[in-house]
Protein backbone atom coordinates (compact mmCIF):
# COMPACT_ATOMS: atom_id res chain seq x y z
CA UNK A 1 0.00 0.00 0.00
CA UNK A 2 0.99 3.66 0.23
CA UNK A 3 3.23 3.37 -2.79
CA UNK A 4 5.37 6.29 -3.78
CA UNK A 5 4.21 8.58 -6.53
CA UNK A 6 4.15 6.69 -9.82
CA UNK A 7 7.29 7.42 -11.78
CA UNK A 8 7.51 4.43 -14.12
CA UNK A 9 7.47 4.26 -17.87
CA UNK A 10 4.37 5.65 -19.55
CA UNK A 11 2.20 3.36 -21.66
CA UNK A 12 -0.45 3.97 -24.30
CA UNK A 13 -3.44 1.90 -23.14
CA UNK A 14 -4.47 1.30 -26.75
CA UNK A 15 -1.53 -1.08 -27.08
CA UNK A 16 -2.79 -3.17 -24.17
CA UNK A 17 -6.25 -3.16 -25.74
CA UNK A 18 -4.95 -4.31 -29.12
CA UNK A 19 -2.63 -6.97 -27.71
CA UNK A 20 -5.37 -8.40 -25.52
CA UNK A 21 -7.96 -8.38 -28.29
CA UNK A 22 -5.58 -10.19 -30.65
CA UNK A 23 -4.72 -12.76 -27.98
CA UNK A 24 -8.39 -13.44 -27.22
CA UNK A 25 -9.35 -13.51 -30.90
CA UNK A 26 -6.79 -16.25 -31.53
CA UNK A 27 -8.86 -18.67 -29.47
CA UNK A 28 -12.33 -17.14 -29.82
CA UNK A 29 -13.41 -17.16 -33.45
CA UNK A 30 -16.52 -15.16 -32.67
CA UNK A 31 -14.52 -12.03 -31.90
CA UNK A 32 -14.68 -9.40 -34.62
CA UNK A 33 -13.42 -5.83 -34.65
CA UNK A 34 -15.66 -3.17 -36.15
CA UNK A 35 -14.33 0.26 -36.96
CA UNK A 36 -15.04 3.50 -38.79
CA UNK A 37 -11.89 3.75 -40.89
CA UNK A 38 -10.00 3.96 -37.59
CA UNK A 39 -7.70 0.97 -38.12
CA UNK A 40 -4.66 3.04 -37.18
CA UNK A 41 -6.05 5.15 -34.38
CA UNK A 42 -7.79 2.13 -32.86
CA UNK A 43 -4.52 0.15 -33.12
CA UNK A 44 -6.23 -2.56 -35.17
CA UNK A 45 -3.36 -3.01 -37.64
CA UNK A 46 -2.17 -6.20 -35.95
CA UNK A 47 -5.71 -7.55 -35.75
CA UNK A 48 -6.17 -6.82 -39.44
CA UNK A 49 -2.98 -8.71 -40.31
CA UNK A 50 -3.87 -11.73 -38.19
CA UNK A 51 -7.62 -11.85 -38.86
CA UNK A 52 -8.28 -9.89 -42.05
CA UNK A 53 -11.75 -11.34 -42.54
CA UNK A 54 -12.78 -10.44 -39.00
CA UNK A 55 -12.07 -6.74 -39.30
CA UNK A 56 -15.34 -5.08 -40.33
CA UNK A 57 -14.50 -1.58 -41.49
CA UNK A 58 -17.70 0.26 -42.35
CA UNK A 59 -15.96 3.44 -43.39
CA UNK A 60 -16.67 6.82 -41.89
CA UNK A 61 -20.17 6.03 -40.72
CA UNK A 62 -20.58 5.77 -36.97
CA UNK A 63 -24.35 5.29 -36.85
CA UNK A 64 -24.06 2.34 -39.20
CA UNK A 65 -21.03 1.06 -37.28
CA UNK A 66 -22.96 0.74 -34.04
CA UNK A 67 -26.01 -0.75 -35.74
CA UNK A 68 -23.82 -3.26 -37.57
CA UNK A 69 -22.31 -4.15 -34.21
CA UNK A 70 -25.76 -4.98 -32.86
CA UNK A 71 -26.52 -7.10 -35.92
CA UNK A 72 -23.24 -8.97 -35.65
CA UNK A 73 -24.07 -9.80 -32.04
CA UNK A 74 -27.53 -10.98 -33.11
CA UNK A 75 -25.77 -13.30 -35.56
CA UNK A 76 -23.62 -14.81 -32.83
CA UNK A 77 -20.44 -12.79 -33.34
CA UNK A 78 -18.66 -10.97 -30.50
CA UNK A 79 -18.07 -7.46 -31.84
CA UNK A 80 -15.64 -4.92 -30.42
CA UNK A 81 -16.84 -1.68 -31.98
CA UNK A 82 -13.97 0.80 -32.01
CA UNK A 83 -13.84 4.46 -32.84
CA UNK A 84 -12.73 7.81 -31.52
CA UNK A 85 -14.85 8.23 -28.43
CA UNK A 86 -16.14 11.66 -29.48
CA UNK A 87 -17.68 10.24 -32.66
CA UNK A 88 -18.62 6.80 -31.33
CA UNK A 89 -20.65 8.21 -28.47
CA UNK A 90 -21.71 11.56 -29.89
CA UNK A 91 -22.60 10.68 -33.45
CA UNK A 92 -24.11 7.29 -32.66
CA UNK A 93 -25.69 7.95 -29.28
CA UNK A 94 -29.20 6.97 -30.36
CA UNK A 95 -27.85 3.74 -31.85
CA UNK A 96 -26.05 3.06 -28.57
CA UNK A 97 -29.32 3.64 -26.75
CA UNK A 98 -31.76 1.71 -28.97
CA UNK A 99 -29.62 -0.93 -30.69
CA UNK A 100 -27.14 -1.70 -27.89
CA UNK A 101 -28.39 -0.68 -24.46
CA UNK A 102 -32.17 -1.08 -24.84
CA UNK A 103 -31.77 -4.16 -27.02
CA UNK A 104 -29.15 -5.48 -24.57
CA UNK A 105 -26.94 -6.50 -27.49
CA UNK A 106 -23.68 -8.23 -26.63
CA UNK A 107 -21.52 -5.49 -28.12
CA UNK A 108 -18.34 -4.04 -26.67
CA UNK A 109 -18.05 -0.33 -27.42
CA UNK A 110 -14.45 0.86 -27.36
CA UNK A 111 -14.10 4.63 -27.17
CA UNK A 112 -10.59 5.47 -28.31
CA UNK A 113 -8.71 8.68 -27.51
CA UNK A 114 -11.31 9.81 -25.03
CA UNK A 115 -11.19 12.93 -22.90
CA UNK A 116 -8.84 15.52 -24.33
CA UNK A 117 -6.43 13.06 -25.92
CA UNK A 118 -6.88 14.94 -29.18
CA UNK A 119 -6.05 18.10 -27.27
CA UNK A 120 -4.72 20.32 -30.03
CA UNK A 121 -7.44 19.27 -32.47
CA UNK A 122 -9.94 21.19 -30.45
CA UNK A 123 -13.28 20.68 -28.74
CA UNK A 124 -14.92 18.90 -31.71
CA UNK A 125 -12.48 16.07 -31.06
CA UNK A 126 -12.55 16.22 -27.27
CA UNK A 127 -14.72 13.55 -25.69
CA UNK A 128 -15.48 15.08 -22.34
CA UNK A 129 -19.22 14.36 -22.46
CA UNK A 130 -19.13 10.60 -22.98
CA UNK A 131 -19.48 9.53 -19.33
CA UNK A 132 -22.58 11.71 -19.04
CA UNK A 133 -24.11 10.42 -22.27
CA UNK A 134 -23.48 6.75 -21.62
CA UNK A 135 -23.91 6.36 -17.90
CA UNK A 136 -27.61 7.20 -18.02
CA UNK A 137 -28.23 4.15 -20.22
CA UNK A 138 -29.33 0.91 -18.56
CA UNK A 139 -27.51 -2.37 -19.27
CA UNK A 140 -24.30 -0.55 -20.15
CA UNK A 141 -21.32 -0.73 -17.79
CA UNK A 142 -19.13 2.35 -18.35
CA UNK A 143 -15.45 1.76 -17.67
CA UNK A 144 -12.32 3.94 -17.88
CA UNK A 145 -9.20 1.92 -16.98
CA UNK A 146 -6.30 3.74 -15.34
CA UNK A 147 -3.33 1.90 -16.85
CA UNK A 148 -2.31 -0.76 -19.35
CA UNK A 149 -2.79 -3.54 -16.82
CA UNK A 150 -6.35 -2.56 -16.01
CA UNK A 151 -7.05 -2.01 -19.71
CA UNK A 152 -5.98 -5.56 -20.56
CA UNK A 153 -7.97 -6.93 -17.62
CA UNK A 154 -11.07 -4.97 -18.60
CA UNK A 155 -10.89 -6.14 -22.22
CA UNK A 156 -10.58 -9.73 -21.03
CA UNK A 157 -13.56 -9.23 -18.72
CA UNK A 158 -15.59 -7.64 -21.53
CA UNK A 159 -14.94 -10.57 -23.85
CA UNK A 160 -16.30 -12.96 -21.25
CA UNK A 161 -19.23 -10.80 -20.13
CA UNK A 162 -22.54 -11.56 -21.81
CA UNK A 163 -23.83 -8.06 -22.43
CA UNK A 164 -22.88 -4.64 -23.71
CA UNK A 165 -20.31 -2.33 -22.17
CA UNK A 166 -18.45 0.87 -22.95
CA UNK A 167 -14.69 0.94 -22.44
CA UNK A 168 -13.26 4.43 -22.51
CA UNK A 169 -9.58 4.39 -23.44
CA UNK A 170 -7.01 7.13 -23.85
CA UNK A 171 -3.88 7.49 -25.93
CA UNK A 172 -2.22 9.65 -23.28
CA UNK A 173 0.62 7.75 -21.60
CA UNK A 174 0.04 6.51 -18.08
CA UNK A 175 2.34 4.64 -15.66
CA UNK A 176 1.56 1.22 -14.25
CA UNK A 177 -0.54 1.45 -11.12
CA UNK A 178 -2.14 -1.95 -10.66
CA UNK A 179 -0.19 -5.18 -10.13
CA UNK A 180 0.47 -7.55 -13.02
CA UNK A 181 -2.19 -10.25 -13.06
CA UNK A 182 -4.85 -7.83 -11.81
CA UNK A 183 -8.36 -9.18 -12.39
CA UNK A 184 -10.96 -6.60 -13.38
CA UNK A 185 -14.17 -6.65 -11.35
CA UNK A 186 -16.84 -4.29 -12.74
CA UNK A 187 -18.33 -1.90 -10.23
CA UNK A 188 -15.48 -2.35 -7.74
CA UNK A 189 -13.03 0.41 -6.91
CA UNK A 190 -9.36 -0.39 -6.28
CA UNK A 191 -7.82 0.94 -3.09
CA UNK A 192 -4.46 2.22 -4.29
CA UNK A 193 -3.45 4.07 -1.14
CA UNK A 194 -4.86 4.00 2.36
CA UNK A 195 -5.55 7.18 4.27
CA UNK A 196 -8.01 8.63 6.77
CA UNK A 197 -7.90 12.38 6.17
CA UNK A 198 -9.79 12.51 2.86
CA UNK A 199 -10.38 10.36 -0.22
CA UNK A 200 -9.22 11.07 -3.74
CA UNK A 201 -11.27 9.30 -6.42
CA UNK A 202 -10.34 9.18 -10.09
CA UNK A 203 -10.11 6.94 -13.12
CA UNK A 204 -8.48 6.88 -16.53
CA UNK A 205 -5.61 9.30 -16.95
CA UNK A 206 -6.32 11.03 -13.64
CA UNK A 207 -5.63 8.17 -11.25
CA UNK A 208 -1.86 8.50 -11.43
CA UNK A 209 -2.13 12.26 -10.93
CA UNK A 210 -4.13 11.58 -7.79
CA UNK A 211 -1.42 9.20 -6.58
CA UNK A 212 1.20 11.88 -7.09
CA UNK A 213 -0.99 14.38 -5.27
CA UNK A 214 -1.42 11.93 -2.38
CA UNK A 215 2.36 11.68 -2.05
CA UNK A 216 2.60 15.47 -1.95
CA UNK A 217 -0.19 15.64 0.62
CA UNK A 218 1.74 13.20 2.80
CA UNK A 219 4.52 15.78 2.93
CA UNK A 220 1.95 18.09 4.53
CA UNK A 221 1.16 15.35 7.03
CA UNK A 222 -2.12 14.54 5.31
CA UNK A 223 -2.90 10.92 4.52
CA UNK A 224 -5.25 10.67 1.55
CA UNK A 225 -7.02 7.50 0.56
CA UNK A 226 -6.87 6.95 -3.21
CA UNK A 227 -9.55 4.98 -4.99
CA UNK A 228 -9.27 4.04 -8.64
CA UNK A 229 -12.92 4.06 -9.79
CA UNK A 230 -12.70 2.67 -13.31
CA UNK A 231 -16.39 1.75 -13.41
CA UNK A 232 -18.54 4.87 -13.52
CA UNK A 233 -21.66 2.75 -13.83
CA UNK A 234 -22.44 0.72 -11.85
CA UNK A 235 -20.60 2.90 -9.37
CA UNK A 236 -19.07 1.30 -6.26
CA UNK A 237 -21.48 2.73 -3.71
CA UNK A 238 -19.99 0.71 -0.88
CA UNK A 239 -16.50 2.14 -1.38
CA UNK A 240 -17.87 5.69 -1.65
CA UNK A 241 -19.98 5.42 1.49
CA UNK A 242 -17.02 3.90 3.37
CA UNK A 243 -14.80 6.72 2.13
CA UNK A 244 -17.32 9.30 3.32
CA UNK A 245 -17.69 7.72 6.74
CA UNK A 246 -14.02 6.93 7.30
CA UNK A 247 -12.32 9.98 5.76
CA UNK A 248 -15.00 12.69 5.89
CA UNK A 249 -14.23 14.39 2.57
CA UNK A 250 -14.06 13.35 -1.09
CA UNK A 251 -12.19 14.94 -3.98
CA UNK A 252 -12.78 13.63 -7.51
CA UNK A 253 -10.87 14.32 -10.71
CA UNK A 254 -11.59 13.24 -14.26
CA UNK A 255 -10.74 13.96 -17.87
CA UNK A 256 -14.36 14.91 -18.49
CA UNK A 257 -16.76 17.75 -17.91
CA UNK A 258 -17.58 18.19 -14.23
CA UNK A 259 -21.22 17.87 -15.32
CA UNK A 260 -22.48 14.33 -15.47
CA UNK A 261 -19.28 12.33 -15.15
CA UNK A 262 -17.43 10.47 -12.42
CA UNK A 263 -17.64 13.32 -9.93
CA UNK A 264 -21.36 13.61 -10.47
CA UNK A 265 -21.80 9.86 -10.06
CA UNK A 266 -19.88 9.94 -6.79
CA UNK A 267 -21.80 13.01 -5.63
CA UNK A 268 -25.12 11.25 -6.23
CA UNK A 269 -24.09 8.49 -3.84
CA UNK A 270 -22.68 10.93 -1.29
CA UNK A 271 -25.81 13.10 -1.29
CA UNK A 272 -28.14 10.14 -1.02
CA UNK A 273 -26.26 8.04 1.50
CA UNK A 274 -23.46 9.85 3.30
CA UNK A 275 -23.27 13.62 2.90
CA UNK A 276 -19.74 14.97 3.43
CA UNK A 277 -17.85 17.87 1.85
CA UNK A 278 -16.89 17.17 -1.75
CA UNK A 279 -15.06 18.86 -4.59
CA UNK A 280 -15.15 17.82 -8.24
CA UNK A 281 -12.23 18.54 -10.54
CA UNK A 282 -12.64 18.26 -14.28
CA UNK A 283 -13.33 20.44 -17.28
CA UNK A 284 -15.49 23.20 -15.81
CA UNK A 285 -18.23 23.32 -18.42
CA UNK A 286 -16.30 25.15 -21.12
CA UNK A 287 -14.79 24.38 -24.51
CA UNK A 288 -11.07 24.13 -24.01
CA UNK A 289 -8.57 26.31 -25.79
CA UNK A 290 -5.67 24.85 -27.73
CA UNK A 291 -3.18 22.56 -26.07
CA UNK A 292 -2.17 18.99 -25.43
CA UNK A 293 -4.21 16.85 -23.07
CA UNK A 294 -1.51 17.11 -20.42
CA UNK A 295 -1.41 20.90 -20.82
CA UNK A 296 -5.19 21.19 -20.62
CA UNK A 297 -5.44 18.94 -17.57
CA UNK A 298 -2.89 21.19 -15.86
CA UNK A 299 -4.78 24.27 -17.02
CA UNK A 300 -8.01 22.97 -15.56
CA UNK A 301 -6.50 22.48 -12.12
CA UNK A 302 -5.51 18.85 -12.31
CA UNK A 303 -1.73 19.10 -12.04
CA UNK A 304 -0.67 17.35 -8.84
CA UNK A 305 0.11 20.59 -6.97
CA UNK A 306 -3.30 21.99 -7.97
CA UNK A 307 -4.98 18.83 -6.75
CA UNK A 308 -3.14 19.32 -3.46
CA UNK A 309 -4.46 22.88 -3.23
CA UNK A 310 -7.99 21.67 -3.89
CA UNK A 311 -7.58 19.00 -1.23
CA UNK A 312 -6.32 21.47 1.34
CA UNK A 313 -9.25 23.79 0.61
CA UNK A 314 -11.65 20.88 0.89
CA UNK A 315 -10.19 19.81 4.24
CA UNK A 316 -11.04 23.24 5.67
CA UNK A 317 -14.70 22.42 5.03
CA UNK A 318 -14.66 19.23 7.08
Amino acid sequence: MNALAPTGKLHDCRDAFAETLERLAATNEAIVAVCNDSVGSSKLGGFKTKFPDRLVNVGIAEQNMVGVGAGLANGGRLPFVCGASCFLTGRALEQIKADISYSNANVKLIGISSGMAYGELGPTHHSIEDFAWTRVLPNLPVIAPCDRIETAAAVEWAANYDGPCFLRLSRVGVPDLLPEGHVFVPGKANLLREGRDLTLIANGTLTHRMMTAASLLAQHGIEARVLNMATVRPIDEEAIVAAAHETGAILTAEEHSIFGGLGSAVAEVVVDQAPVPMKRLGVPGVYAHTGSAEFLLDEFGMAAPSIVEAALALLKRK
Partner: peptide
Protein backbone atom coordinates in the same frame (compact mmCIF):
# COMPACT_ATOMS: atom_id res chain seq x y z
CA UNK B 1 -33.87 -5.97 -32.31
CA UNK B 2 -35.55 -2.98 -30.73
CA UNK B 3 -36.77 -0.46 -33.25
CA UNK B 4 -38.73 2.74 -33.04
CA UNK B 5 -36.38 5.55 -33.91
CA UNK B 6 -36.21 5.46 -37.70
CA UNK B 7 -33.11 4.52 -39.64
CA UNK B 8 -31.98 1.85 -37.18
CA UNK B 9 -33.15 -1.45 -38.64
CA UNK B 10 -31.14 -1.51 -41.84
CA UNK B 11 -27.71 -1.05 -40.19
CA UNK B 12 -28.55 -3.83 -37.74
CA UNK B 13 -29.71 -6.04 -40.60
CA UNK B 14 -26.42 -5.39 -42.39
CA UNK B 15 -24.65 -6.61 -39.25
CA UNK B 16 -26.84 -9.74 -39.17
CA UNK B 17 -26.09 -10.54 -42.79
CA UNK B 18 -22.39 -9.85 -42.29
CA UNK B 19 -22.39 -12.15 -39.26
CA UNK B 20 -23.74 -14.97 -41.43
CA UNK B 21 -20.97 -14.35 -43.95
CA UNK B 22 -18.37 -14.53 -41.17
Amino acid sequence: TNTGPLGHGLPVAVGMAKAAKL
